[in-house]
């Protein structure tokens, strides 16, 4: 992975409003060549609008947007020749076969990869003659990404590539994205899955209400807010919150999905205190566990709500 040279994406103070709705409200970031950059946020955060401005599908209201060193407003055609695009939940011509669709999309570009090569690379050989409407969800998504790569692009945009896929299909797509990076391509993706961002992205921007709240590598984002580790267990009324907050090592107590989370900078001390307290009150902290803080914690901390709400 090389992260040298001019950035492949440079966005400065991008704004895009729809009437009173500030879909994107002053966003700035850069993506380096060879980097996988993730944009993380709930539905309606402005991720898709941002990515569609970069793809040349929507004009920005204001701000400066450069892709591969070119202004999206003045050079949309040159940019489109060199980028790959996978849109969120798009179906294709339902009655064309996999082969026909790859051929067709290839014909739109000056340079394109052989159809056979893409079919093999995306393991679509057995379905090469199937209509796109008869493909499974995972196969459709693989075809959709194969079409994004038909022109062997330098920069690939993936908008929620794994939404709606089963865990196995999701894993296989993650491998594909990692493969893209190994080929030296830059990738910008959006997702609302934390583990996906953590697994794939060199850097992540967390977006909500049209703004970027925080940006950096995943360890950076976690380390910036959470020096502690988290002790968690199923919330029970027998263990009152105010006493939990005063246990040794605890900096903060939080409620998350029916669990109590104690952020602690001295886990042995906290667990010892917790067990003593449970014994005294004849309570049992069920499903007790310890983990590092995650992106999910970062998001909760930033926005006060869970990502999938």
């Amino acid at each position: 992975m090389t992260q040298s040279g001019a950035p492949v994406i440079r966005v400065t103070d991008l704004k895009k409003h729809y009437g009173d709705v500030k879909a994107v409200d002053g966003v700035s970031f850069e993506v380096a060549r060879g980097e996988v950059f993730g944009m993380l946020g709930p539905n309606g955060a402005g991720k898709t609008t941002t990515i569609e401005v970069l793809e040349g599908l929507r004009p920005p209201d204001s701000g400066n947007v450069e892709v591969l060193g070119l202004d999206v407003c003045t050079h949309p055609q040159s940019i489109k020749q060199r980028i790959g695009v996978q849109l969120q939940s798009v179906s294709l011509y339902p009655r064309l076969t996999v082969t026909e669709l790859i051929d067709l999309f290839g014909s739109f570009f000056q340079h394109h990869l052989p159809t056979k090569q893409l079919i093999d690379a995306f393991d679509l050989g057995e379905r090469a003659k199937a209509y796109s409407m008869n493909l499974s969800g995972g196969q459709q998504q693989r075809l959709s990404i194969a079409l994004a790569l038909v022109n062997d692009p330098e920069l690939v945009f993936l908008d929620e590539p794994t939404t709606g896929l089963d865990p196995q299909a999701r894993r296989s797509l993650w491998d594909l994205v990692k493969g893209l990076q190994e080929q030296g391509k830059s990738v910008m993706l959006t997702t609302h899955y934390m583990e996906e961002a953590a697994e794939l992205c060199n850097r992540v921007a967390i977006m909500d209400h049209g703004r970027i709240l925080e940006m950096g590598t995943v360890p950076e984002l976690i380390g910036r807010r959470f020096k502690e580790r988290a002790v968690f267990f199923d919330t029970t009324p027998k263990l009152p919150a105010q006493r939990l907050g005063k246990l040794g090592g605890v900096t903060r107590a939080a409620q998350e999905d029916g669990q109590t989370v104690l952020y602690s900078n001295d886990v042995p001390d906290t667990i010892g205190g917790l067990l003593a307290m449970a014994d005294e009150l004849s309570a049992e902290p069920r499903n007790l566990g310890i983990r590092q803080a995650t992106l999910e914690d970062v998001f909760l901390d930033l926005t006060g709500r869970a990502l999938r709400d």
């Binding site: 489109k80 020749q81 695009v85 849109l87 939940s89 798009v90 739109f108």
Partner: peptide, 16 residues
């Protein structure tokens, strides 16, 4: 149908 399914939009993201 092509607009509703996003096919027209997808075509718009190519140099076509």
């Amino acid at each position: 149908q092509q607009r509703e399914k996003g096919i027209l939009k997808r075509m718009g993201a190519t140099p076509l």
